[in-house]
Amino acid sequence: MAAPAVRRWGLRAGHLGIVGLFTVFTAFPFYWMLITTFKRETDLLKRANNPFVYNEPPTLENVRILFEETLYGRWLANTLFVGLLVVVITLLLSLPAGYALARLTGRWGERLGIGIFLTYLVPPTLLFIPMARVIGDLGLQDSLWSLVLVYPSFTVPFCTWLLMGFFKAIPPDLEEAAMIDGHSRLGAFVRVVVPISVAGILTVVIFTLTLVMQEFVYALTFITAARNFTVSVGVPTFLVHGDVYFWGSLMAGAFISSVPIAILYNLFVDRFIAGFTVGAVK
C-alpha cells in the first residue's frame, strides 16, 4: 500500500478514536442513569454482580416510587414554571440591554458590557445570604416567585453579554435601512434585528432553562415546603434518607429531567455554538 494511503487511514483512525472516546465519555452518564433506573435493589447492591448490565430482570419499581411516593411530577411542573418565567424575564431585559450596549453607547458600551459580565462571575454562594434578606423583606419565603425573582440576577447579565455579541455582528446598515423605510428605532429592532438574531435568542432560551434546572443553592435556601421544590432540590432531599440512597429512583429522576435538555441542545447545537462564537471572531 502506498505511504499516503497508510497515512490517510492512520489519520482517520486517530480521528475516529478520539471522537469515539469523547462519545463514550459523554454518553456514559446517560447509560448509567438509564440502566440503574430499572435495576432491582438486590442487583445494585451485590458486589459480585457486573455493574454495567442487568444481572436480574429489570423492574419499574424505582419509577413507581419516584412518581407515587414523592412529588416528582409536581417538582417538574414547578421547575418548568420557574424556567419559562425566567426565560421570559431574561429575554425582556437582556434583548434591549444587549442591543443598547452593542449600538447606542459608543465606547462606553464595551466597558459596561465587561462590567455586566463580571457581575455574572459573582458566585451564588456569596449572594444567597443578602438575597435571603431581600426575599424575606418581600415576604416571598417558600414561594416559587422568590426563584423567579432571583434567577434573573445571574441569567440577565450573561445573556445580555451574549446578545451584545450577536447584535454587534449585525451590520448597522440593516437597522438604518429599516428606519429609512418607515420605522422607528424600536420598530427596526423588533422587525429586523430580532428576527435576524433568532440563533442568539435560542441560545438564551436554552442557556436560561439549563441554569434554572440545575440551580441548587437558591432553591434550597428559599424553598422549604416539599410541594414547592424544584427538581434539583426535591430529588436529593426525598430520595436520600440519611445515608440510604434510593439509587434507582434518584437516577430515574435525574434521567427524566436531563433528557429534554439534551434533546433541546442537540436540535440547536449548531446555532448554539454559533451563539458562543459570534462576535468573538469579529
Binding site: L174, E176, A177
Partner: peptide, 8 residues
C-alpha cells in the same frame, strides 16, 4: 446603501 442592506 453600499452594502445594499437587504433584510436577510
Amino acid at each position: 446603501f453600499q452594502s445594499y442592506a437587504l433584510y436577510p
